[in-house]
Design a protein around this nucleic acid. Structure first.
Lengths: 220, 220
DNA sequence: GTGCTTAAACTGTGATCACAGAATCACTCA
DNA sequence: TGAGTGATTCTGTGATCACAGTTTAAGCAC
Protein backbone atom coordinates (compact mmCIF):
# COMPACT_ATOMS: atom_id res chain seq x y z
CA UNK A 1 0.00 0.00 0.00
CA UNK A 2 1.63 3.19 -1.15
CA UNK A 3 0.74 6.60 0.09
CA UNK A 4 0.23 7.96 -3.40
CA UNK A 5 -1.87 11.06 -3.54
CA UNK A 6 -4.65 11.45 -6.05
CA UNK A 7 -4.86 15.08 -7.09
CA UNK A 8 -8.16 14.53 -8.89
CA UNK A 9 -10.39 13.01 -6.27
CA UNK A 10 -9.07 14.62 -3.13
CA UNK A 11 -10.92 17.67 -1.97
CA UNK A 12 -7.86 19.79 -1.37
CA UNK A 13 -6.84 22.07 -4.13
CA UNK A 14 -3.10 21.62 -3.94
CA UNK A 15 -0.78 18.78 -3.17
CA UNK A 16 0.91 20.52 -0.26
CA UNK A 17 -2.34 20.71 1.65
CA UNK A 18 -3.07 17.02 1.10
CA UNK A 19 0.35 15.93 2.26
CA UNK A 20 0.13 18.32 5.17
CA UNK A 21 -3.22 16.90 6.23
CA UNK A 22 -1.99 13.33 5.86
CA UNK A 23 1.12 13.85 7.95
CA UNK A 24 -0.83 15.81 10.50
CA UNK A 25 -3.26 12.95 11.03
CA UNK A 26 -0.38 10.50 11.29
CA UNK A 27 1.03 12.64 14.08
CA UNK A 28 -2.29 12.83 15.90
CA UNK A 29 -2.75 9.06 15.95
CA UNK A 30 0.86 8.45 16.83
CA UNK A 31 1.79 6.75 13.59
CA UNK A 32 5.00 8.75 13.63
CA UNK A 33 7.25 8.15 16.57
CA UNK A 34 9.16 10.77 18.58
CA UNK A 35 12.63 11.47 17.16
CA UNK A 36 11.66 9.81 13.89
CA UNK A 37 13.19 11.69 10.98
CA UNK A 38 11.32 12.65 7.84
CA UNK A 39 13.16 13.25 4.59
CA UNK A 40 11.70 15.43 1.88
CA UNK A 41 12.89 13.25 -0.95
CA UNK A 42 11.85 9.99 0.68
CA UNK A 43 8.37 11.29 1.37
CA UNK A 44 8.13 12.73 -2.12
CA UNK A 45 8.82 9.29 -3.49
CA UNK A 46 6.21 7.67 -1.24
CA UNK A 47 3.58 10.22 -2.14
CA UNK A 48 4.64 10.02 -5.76
CA UNK A 49 5.09 13.78 -6.13
CA UNK A 50 8.05 16.07 -6.44
CA UNK A 51 9.92 17.43 -3.47
CA UNK A 52 8.20 20.78 -3.67
CA UNK A 53 4.82 20.00 -2.08
CA UNK A 54 6.48 17.89 0.59
CA UNK A 55 8.91 20.55 1.69
CA UNK A 56 6.10 23.05 2.07
CA UNK A 57 4.07 20.61 4.10
CA UNK A 58 7.02 19.85 6.35
CA UNK A 59 7.89 23.48 6.81
CA UNK A 60 4.30 24.19 7.71
CA UNK A 61 4.29 21.46 10.33
CA UNK A 62 7.61 22.71 11.65
CA UNK A 63 6.22 26.22 11.97
CA UNK A 64 3.56 24.96 14.36
CA UNK A 65 6.16 22.89 16.23
CA UNK A 66 4.60 19.65 15.10
CA UNK A 67 8.01 18.85 13.65
CA UNK A 68 11.50 20.10 14.33
CA UNK A 69 13.22 21.67 11.37
CA UNK A 70 16.85 22.71 11.65
CA UNK A 71 18.57 24.14 8.63
CA UNK A 72 20.25 21.54 6.44
CA UNK A 73 19.24 18.77 8.79
CA UNK A 74 16.45 16.26 8.41
CA UNK A 75 13.06 17.15 9.84
CA UNK A 76 12.31 15.19 12.99
CA UNK A 77 9.31 14.41 15.14
CA UNK A 78 9.92 16.25 18.42
CA UNK A 79 11.03 14.17 21.36
CA UNK A 80 9.28 16.02 24.14
CA UNK A 81 10.81 16.49 27.54
CA UNK A 82 8.43 15.98 30.42
CA UNK A 83 8.34 19.73 30.96
CA UNK A 84 7.35 20.40 27.38
CA UNK A 85 4.69 17.73 27.54
CA UNK A 86 3.38 19.24 30.77
CA UNK A 87 3.10 22.60 29.06
CA UNK A 88 1.08 21.11 26.23
CA UNK A 89 -1.30 19.24 28.50
CA UNK A 90 -1.74 22.36 30.61
CA UNK A 91 -2.83 24.14 27.46
CA UNK A 92 -5.19 21.35 26.54
CA UNK A 93 -6.74 21.66 29.96
CA UNK A 94 -7.17 25.42 29.63
CA UNK A 95 -8.52 25.42 26.08
CA UNK A 96 -10.59 22.25 26.15
CA UNK A 97 -11.95 23.21 29.54
CA UNK A 98 -13.13 26.54 28.22
CA UNK A 99 -14.48 24.81 25.12
CA UNK A 100 -16.49 22.29 27.11
CA UNK A 101 -18.01 25.08 29.12
CA UNK A 102 -19.18 26.81 25.96
CA UNK A 103 -20.24 23.57 24.27
CA UNK A 104 -22.90 22.89 26.90
CA UNK A 105 -25.03 25.68 25.50
CA UNK A 106 -24.96 24.37 21.94
CA UNK A 107 -25.17 20.60 22.31
CA UNK A 108 -28.11 18.68 20.85
CA UNK A 109 -29.50 15.18 21.23
CA UNK A 110 -27.83 13.88 18.08
CA UNK A 111 -24.46 14.85 19.48
CA UNK A 112 -24.80 12.48 22.42
CA UNK A 113 -25.29 9.41 20.22
CA UNK A 114 -22.18 10.39 18.26
CA UNK A 115 -20.15 10.96 21.39
CA UNK A 116 -21.28 7.63 22.83
CA UNK A 117 -20.22 5.89 19.65
CA UNK A 118 -16.77 7.43 19.93
CA UNK A 119 -16.51 6.17 23.49
CA UNK A 120 -17.46 2.69 22.30
CA UNK A 121 -14.76 2.87 19.66
CA UNK A 122 -12.26 3.89 22.27
CA UNK A 123 -13.10 0.92 24.48
CA UNK A 124 -12.96 -1.53 21.58
CA UNK A 125 -9.69 -0.24 20.20
CA UNK A 126 -8.17 -0.07 23.66
CA UNK A 127 -9.09 -3.68 24.26
CA UNK A 128 -7.41 -4.62 20.99
CA UNK A 129 -4.38 -2.57 21.94
CA UNK A 130 -4.70 -0.75 18.63
CA UNK A 131 -2.94 2.41 19.64
CA UNK A 132 -3.53 4.44 16.49
CA UNK A 133 -7.20 3.56 16.29
CA UNK A 134 -7.62 4.38 19.96
CA UNK A 135 -5.99 7.76 19.64
CA UNK A 136 -8.12 8.47 16.59
CA UNK A 137 -11.33 7.67 18.48
CA UNK A 138 -10.16 9.75 21.40
CA UNK A 139 -9.43 12.61 19.05
CA UNK A 140 -12.84 12.28 17.38
CA UNK A 141 -14.56 12.46 20.74
CA UNK A 142 -12.79 15.59 21.86
CA UNK A 143 -12.99 17.23 18.46
CA UNK A 144 -16.73 16.79 18.42
CA UNK A 145 -17.02 18.50 21.77
CA UNK A 146 -14.87 21.50 20.99
CA UNK A 147 -16.35 21.86 17.52
CA UNK A 148 -19.64 22.61 19.27
CA UNK A 149 -18.21 25.93 20.34
CA UNK A 150 -18.37 27.21 16.79
CA UNK A 151 -15.09 28.99 17.46
CA UNK A 152 -12.90 28.04 14.54
CA UNK A 153 -9.77 29.59 15.98
CA UNK A 154 -10.25 27.68 19.21
CA UNK A 155 -10.70 24.45 17.31
CA UNK A 156 -7.53 24.96 15.33
CA UNK A 157 -5.52 25.65 18.46
CA UNK A 158 -6.74 22.57 20.28
CA UNK A 159 -6.17 20.44 17.23
CA UNK A 160 -2.62 21.72 16.99
CA UNK A 161 -2.10 20.43 20.52
CA UNK A 162 -3.31 16.96 19.57
CA UNK A 163 -0.82 16.96 16.72
CA UNK A 164 1.99 17.72 19.12
CA UNK A 165 0.99 15.31 21.87
CA UNK A 166 0.06 12.43 19.56
CA UNK A 167 3.48 10.83 19.12
CA UNK A 168 4.23 11.26 22.79
CA UNK A 169 0.93 9.68 23.86
CA UNK A 170 1.42 6.77 21.48
CA UNK A 171 4.81 6.06 22.96
CA UNK A 172 3.36 6.20 26.45
CA UNK A 173 0.53 3.83 25.61
CA UNK A 174 2.61 1.12 23.99
CA UNK A 175 5.00 1.17 26.94
CA UNK A 176 2.21 1.02 29.47
CA UNK A 177 2.72 -1.75 32.01
CA UNK A 178 -0.80 -2.37 33.25
CA UNK A 179 -3.12 -1.85 30.27
CA UNK A 180 -6.16 -2.36 32.46
CA UNK A 181 -5.55 0.95 34.09
CA UNK A 182 -7.99 2.69 31.82
CA UNK A 183 -8.56 6.24 32.94
CA UNK A 184 -11.08 7.68 30.52
CA UNK A 185 -13.44 10.26 31.98
CA UNK A 186 -15.40 10.34 28.77
CA UNK A 187 -18.69 8.79 29.92
CA UNK A 188 -18.73 11.22 32.81
CA UNK A 189 -18.12 14.10 30.43
CA UNK A 190 -21.11 13.02 28.36
CA UNK A 191 -23.21 12.88 31.50
CA UNK A 192 -22.16 16.36 32.54
CA UNK A 193 -22.91 17.72 29.08
CA UNK A 194 -26.33 16.08 29.10
CA UNK A 195 -27.04 17.50 32.53
CA UNK A 196 -26.10 20.94 31.26
CA UNK A 197 -23.54 21.26 34.02
CA UNK A 198 -20.96 23.55 32.41
CA UNK A 199 -18.69 23.74 35.43
CA UNK A 200 -18.55 19.98 35.84
CA UNK A 201 -17.99 19.46 32.12
CA UNK A 202 -15.07 21.82 32.36
CA UNK A 203 -13.62 20.18 35.44
CA UNK A 204 -13.84 16.68 33.96
CA UNK A 205 -12.35 17.81 30.67
CA UNK A 206 -9.46 19.46 32.44
CA UNK A 207 -8.91 16.29 34.40
CA UNK A 208 -8.97 14.20 31.25
CA UNK A 209 -6.34 16.42 29.69
CA UNK A 210 -4.04 15.55 32.52
CA UNK A 211 -4.45 11.86 31.80
CA UNK A 212 -1.57 12.04 29.36
CA UNK A 213 0.71 13.35 32.06
CA UNK A 214 -0.17 10.43 34.29
CA UNK A 215 0.86 8.13 31.49
CA UNK A 216 4.29 9.66 31.72
CA UNK A 217 4.58 9.33 35.46
CA UNK A 218 3.73 5.66 35.28
CA UNK A 219 6.70 5.20 33.02
CA UNK A 220 8.91 6.84 35.57
CA UNK B 1 14.39 52.30 2.11
CA UNK B 2 14.07 48.84 0.74
CA UNK B 3 13.19 45.78 2.70
CA UNK B 4 16.21 43.88 1.45
CA UNK B 5 17.22 40.98 3.61
CA UNK B 6 20.80 40.45 4.64
CA UNK B 7 21.47 36.73 4.85
CA UNK B 8 24.83 37.28 6.53
CA UNK B 9 24.01 39.38 9.55
CA UNK B 10 20.53 38.21 10.36
CA UNK B 11 20.33 35.55 13.02
CA UNK B 12 17.97 33.27 11.15
CA UNK B 13 19.52 30.52 9.16
CA UNK B 14 17.30 30.65 6.13
CA UNK B 15 15.61 33.38 4.16
CA UNK B 16 12.13 31.98 4.60
CA UNK B 17 12.30 32.39 8.35
CA UNK B 18 13.49 35.98 8.06
CA UNK B 19 10.72 36.95 5.67
CA UNK B 20 8.23 35.09 7.79
CA UNK B 21 9.31 36.97 10.89
CA UNK B 22 9.26 40.30 9.11
CA UNK B 23 5.75 39.85 7.73
CA UNK B 24 4.56 38.50 11.04
CA UNK B 25 5.68 41.60 12.87
CA UNK B 26 4.11 43.81 10.23
CA UNK B 27 0.83 42.02 10.90
CA UNK B 28 1.12 42.43 14.65
CA UNK B 29 1.66 46.17 14.46
CA UNK B 30 -1.01 46.62 11.83
CA UNK B 31 1.31 47.67 9.06
CA UNK B 32 -0.64 45.42 6.74
CA UNK B 33 -4.28 46.29 6.33
CA UNK B 34 -7.22 43.87 6.25
CA UNK B 35 -8.01 42.65 2.71
CA UNK B 36 -4.61 43.82 1.52
CA UNK B 37 -3.22 41.39 -1.00
CA UNK B 38 0.33 40.10 -0.99
CA UNK B 39 1.96 38.82 -4.14
CA UNK B 40 4.81 36.37 -4.02
CA UNK B 41 6.70 37.95 -6.87
CA UNK B 42 6.20 41.52 -5.69
CA UNK B 43 7.43 40.65 -2.21
CA UNK B 44 10.34 38.69 -3.66
CA UNK B 45 11.38 41.82 -5.52
CA UNK B 46 11.09 43.99 -2.39
CA UNK B 47 13.09 41.57 -0.29
CA UNK B 48 15.52 41.09 -3.14
CA UNK B 49 15.26 37.32 -3.10
CA UNK B 50 13.69 34.74 -5.34
CA UNK B 51 10.07 33.69 -5.08
CA UNK B 52 10.91 30.54 -3.23
CA UNK B 53 11.51 31.85 0.30
CA UNK B 54 8.56 34.21 0.01
CA UNK B 55 6.09 31.54 -0.98
CA UNK B 56 7.11 29.41 1.96
CA UNK B 57 6.74 32.32 4.35
CA UNK B 58 3.31 33.16 2.96
CA UNK B 59 2.14 29.57 3.07
CA UNK B 60 3.32 29.35 6.64
CA UNK B 61 1.39 32.46 7.61
CA UNK B 62 -1.63 31.15 5.77
CA UNK B 63 -1.45 27.88 7.65
CA UNK B 64 -1.87 29.73 10.92
CA UNK B 65 -4.66 31.83 9.45
CA UNK B 66 -2.59 34.98 9.61
CA UNK B 67 -3.19 35.23 5.88
CA UNK B 68 -5.80 33.82 3.55
CA UNK B 69 -4.40 31.61 0.82
CA UNK B 70 -6.75 30.32 -1.86
CA UNK B 71 -5.31 28.25 -4.67
CA UNK B 72 -4.20 30.31 -7.64
CA UNK B 73 -5.37 33.52 -6.00
CA UNK B 74 -3.30 36.19 -4.33
CA UNK B 75 -2.67 35.84 -0.62
CA UNK B 76 -4.70 38.34 1.37
CA UNK B 77 -4.77 39.73 4.87
CA UNK B 78 -7.99 38.39 6.41
CA UNK B 79 -10.86 40.82 6.72
CA UNK B 80 -12.36 39.60 9.95
CA UNK B 81 -16.07 39.54 10.55
CA UNK B 82 -17.12 40.72 13.98
CA UNK B 83 -17.84 37.12 14.94
CA UNK B 84 -14.38 35.97 13.97
CA UNK B 85 -12.81 38.87 15.84
CA UNK B 86 -14.91 38.02 18.88
CA UNK B 87 -13.62 34.45 18.74
CA UNK B 88 -10.04 35.64 18.69
CA UNK B 89 -10.46 38.05 21.57
CA UNK B 90 -12.24 35.37 23.55
CA UNK B 91 -9.18 33.21 23.07
CA UNK B 92 -6.89 36.01 24.09
CA UNK B 93 -8.90 36.39 27.26
CA UNK B 94 -8.72 32.68 28.02
CA UNK B 95 -5.02 32.23 27.27
CA UNK B 96 -3.66 35.53 28.53
CA UNK B 97 -5.83 35.26 31.61
CA UNK B 98 -4.36 31.86 32.42
CA UNK B 99 -0.90 33.19 31.62
CA UNK B 100 -1.24 36.17 33.95
CA UNK B 101 -2.35 33.87 36.74
CA UNK B 102 0.79 31.78 36.30
CA UNK B 103 3.06 34.77 35.78
CA UNK B 104 2.39 36.10 39.26
CA UNK B 105 4.49 33.31 40.74
CA UNK B 106 7.53 34.03 38.58
CA UNK B 107 7.66 37.82 38.36
CA UNK B 108 10.64 39.74 39.73
CA UNK B 109 11.38 43.36 40.52
CA UNK B 110 13.21 44.00 37.25
CA UNK B 111 10.11 42.98 35.34
CA UNK B 112 8.07 45.80 36.82
CA UNK B 113 10.42 48.50 35.56
CA UNK B 114 10.27 46.97 32.10
CA UNK B 115 6.50 46.72 32.15
CA UNK B 116 6.21 50.32 33.32
CA UNK B 117 8.42 51.44 30.47
CA UNK B 118 6.17 49.67 27.98
CA UNK B 119 3.17 51.45 29.46
CA UNK B 120 4.97 54.77 29.07
CA UNK B 121 5.67 53.92 25.45
CA UNK B 122 2.04 53.12 24.92
CA UNK B 123 0.91 56.45 26.30
CA UNK B 124 3.45 58.41 24.27
CA UNK B 125 2.70 56.62 21.02
CA UNK B 126 -1.02 56.86 21.63
CA UNK B 127 -0.71 60.60 22.13
CA UNK B 128 1.16 60.85 18.84
CA UNK B 129 -1.47 58.70 17.14
CA UNK B 130 1.32 56.44 15.95
CA UNK B 131 -0.75 53.34 15.53
CA UNK B 132 2.02 50.89 14.66
CA UNK B 133 4.28 52.04 17.47
CA UNK B 134 1.38 51.86 19.90
CA UNK B 135 0.47 48.33 18.92
CA UNK B 136 4.11 47.35 19.19
CA UNK B 137 4.37 48.72 22.72
CA UNK B 138 1.13 47.03 23.65
CA UNK B 139 2.45 43.78 22.25
CA UNK B 140 5.71 44.14 24.14
CA UNK B 141 3.86 44.66 27.38
CA UNK B 142 1.68 41.59 27.01
CA UNK B 143 4.48 39.46 25.65
CA UNK B 144 6.60 40.21 28.66
CA UNK B 145 3.82 39.09 30.95
CA UNK B 146 3.02 35.82 29.23
CA UNK B 147 6.69 35.05 28.67
CA UNK B 148 6.98 34.88 32.46
CA UNK B 149 5.01 31.65 32.37
CA UNK B 150 7.95 29.84 30.83
CA UNK B 151 5.45 27.90 28.74
CA UNK B 152 6.74 28.19 25.19
CA UNK B 153 3.70 26.63 23.60
CA UNK B 154 1.45 29.06 25.43
CA UNK B 155 3.56 31.99 24.27
CA UNK B 156 3.42 30.88 20.67
CA UNK B 157 -0.33 30.53 20.77
CA UNK B 158 -0.92 33.95 22.26
CA UNK B 159 1.49 35.51 19.83
CA UNK B 160 -0.37 33.90 16.94
CA UNK B 161 -3.48 35.68 18.18
CA UNK B 162 -1.72 39.04 18.13
CA UNK B 163 -0.73 38.36 14.54
CA UNK B 164 -4.33 37.75 13.60
CA UNK B 165 -5.86 40.65 15.50
CA UNK B 166 -3.18 43.20 14.59
CA UNK B 167 -4.54 44.40 11.25
CA UNK B 168 -8.04 44.49 12.65
CA UNK B 169 -7.01 46.52 15.70
CA UNK B 170 -5.03 48.95 13.59
CA UNK B 171 -8.06 49.59 11.43
CA UNK B 172 -10.20 50.15 14.50
CA UNK B 173 -7.74 52.57 16.03
CA UNK B 174 -7.30 54.81 13.02
CA UNK B 175 -11.06 55.02 12.58
CA UNK B 176 -11.64 55.83 16.22
CA UNK B 177 -13.77 58.92 16.70
CA UNK B 178 -12.82 60.01 20.20
CA UNK B 179 -9.12 59.25 20.64
CA UNK B 180 -9.27 60.34 24.26
CA UNK B 181 -11.25 57.30 25.12
CA UNK B 182 -8.20 55.43 26.23
CA UNK B 183 -9.07 52.17 27.89
CA UNK B 184 -5.80 50.58 28.93
CA UNK B 185 -5.92 48.49 32.08
CA UNK B 186 -2.20 48.10 32.03
CA UNK B 187 -1.22 50.08 35.12
CA UNK B 188 -3.82 48.15 37.08
CA UNK B 189 -2.40 44.90 35.75
CA UNK B 190 1.04 45.89 36.98
CA UNK B 191 -0.41 46.71 40.38
CA UNK B 192 -2.15 43.35 40.61
CA UNK B 193 1.03 41.54 39.61
CA UNK B 194 3.00 43.45 42.21
CA UNK B 195 0.42 42.65 44.86
CA UNK B 196 0.68 38.99 43.94
CA UNK B 197 -3.06 38.89 43.34
CA UNK B 198 -3.32 36.17 40.69
CA UNK B 199 -7.10 36.26 40.44
CA UNK B 200 -7.19 40.01 39.94
CA UNK B 201 -4.35 39.87 37.41
CA UNK B 202 -6.35 37.33 35.49
CA UNK B 203 -9.56 39.32 35.66
CA UNK B 204 -7.91 42.53 34.48
CA UNK B 205 -6.08 40.76 31.68
CA UNK B 206 -9.29 39.18 30.49
CA UNK B 207 -10.95 42.56 30.57
CA UNK B 208 -8.11 44.13 28.61
CA UNK B 209 -8.43 41.45 25.95
CA UNK B 210 -11.98 42.57 25.40
CA UNK B 211 -10.85 46.11 24.75
CA UNK B 212 -10.41 45.29 21.07
CA UNK B 213 -14.01 44.25 20.84
CA UNK B 214 -15.13 47.53 22.31
CA UNK B 215 -13.17 49.26 19.59
CA UNK B 216 -15.35 47.50 17.09
CA UNK B 217 -18.60 48.38 18.77
CA UNK B 218 -17.68 52.04 18.80
CA UNK B 219 -17.37 51.90 15.06
CA UNK B 220 -20.85 50.42 14.83
C1' DG C 1 40.86 -4.25 17.40
C1' DT C 2 40.65 0.89 17.77
C1' DG C 3 40.73 5.63 16.37
C1' DC C 4 41.18 8.96 12.86
C1' DT C 5 40.55 10.61 8.21
C1' DT C 6 38.35 11.06 4.02
C1' DA C 7 35.07 10.42 0.64
C1' DA C 8 30.48 9.37 -0.61
C1' DA C 9 25.60 9.76 0.26
C1' DC C 10 22.03 12.45 2.11
C1' DT C 11 20.03 16.71 4.00
C1' DG C 12 17.34 21.13 3.34
C1' DT C 13 17.61 25.56 0.62
C1' DG C 14 17.31 28.70 -3.17
C1' DA C 15 16.76 29.83 -8.06
C1' DT C 16 14.58 29.18 -12.37
C1' DC C 17 11.32 27.56 -15.59
C1' DA C 18 6.69 25.88 -17.33
C1' DC C 19 1.97 25.78 -16.52
C1' DA C 20 -2.94 26.60 -15.49
C1' DG C 21 -6.40 29.18 -13.41
C1' DA C 22 -8.13 34.12 -11.97
C1' DA C 23 -8.55 38.80 -12.62
C1' DT C 24 -8.42 42.84 -15.30
C1' DC C 25 -8.90 45.82 -18.90
C1' DA C 26 -9.72 47.25 -23.40
C1' DC C 27 -12.48 46.55 -27.31
C1' DT C 28 -16.57 45.50 -29.92
C1' DC C 29 -21.27 45.23 -30.82
C1' DA C 30 -25.92 46.14 -29.67
C1' DT D 1 -24.29 54.26 -23.08
C1' DG D 2 -23.99 49.80 -21.70
C1' DA D 3 -23.16 44.83 -21.53
C1' DG D 4 -20.66 41.16 -23.30
C1' DT D 5 -16.33 39.16 -24.94
C1' DG D 6 -11.79 38.60 -25.90
C1' DA D 7 -6.89 38.85 -24.87
C1' DT D 8 -3.41 40.10 -21.78
C1' DT D 9 -1.50 40.23 -17.35
C1' DC D 10 -1.04 38.41 -12.85
C1' DT D 11 -1.72 34.71 -9.55
C1' DG D 12 0.03 30.50 -7.04
C1' DT D 13 1.76 25.70 -7.98
C1' DG D 14 4.80 22.01 -9.24
C1' DA D 15 9.08 20.17 -11.24
C1' DT D 16 13.91 20.31 -11.82
C1' DC D 17 18.48 21.71 -11.09
C1' DA D 18 22.65 23.42 -8.46
C1' DC D 19 24.60 24.09 -4.09
C1' DA D 20 26.33 23.82 0.59
C1' DG D 21 26.20 21.91 4.92
C1' DT D 22 25.52 17.27 7.68
C1' DT D 23 25.76 12.71 8.44
C1' DT D 24 27.34 8.27 7.60
C1' DA D 25 30.39 4.73 6.37
C1' DA D 26 34.28 2.89 4.55
C1' DG D 27 39.19 2.66 4.58
C1' DC D 28 43.60 3.44 6.33
C1' DA D 29 47.09 3.99 9.88
C1' DC D 30 48.45 2.74 14.41
Amino acid sequence: MDKAINPEKDGSENLSAQIYADLRLKLIVGELRPAESLSIRTLAEKYNVSAMPVREALRQLASENALIGVAKKAYRVPDLTSDEAANLFFLRAVLEGAAAEVAVANIKEADFTLLSRFVDDMEKTWAKRDCSAFLLSNFHFHRHVYSLTGNGALQDMIEALYVRTGPWLALGIVNLENPDHWMGEHPEIIAALRAGDAAEARRLTEEDARWGMQLYRELG
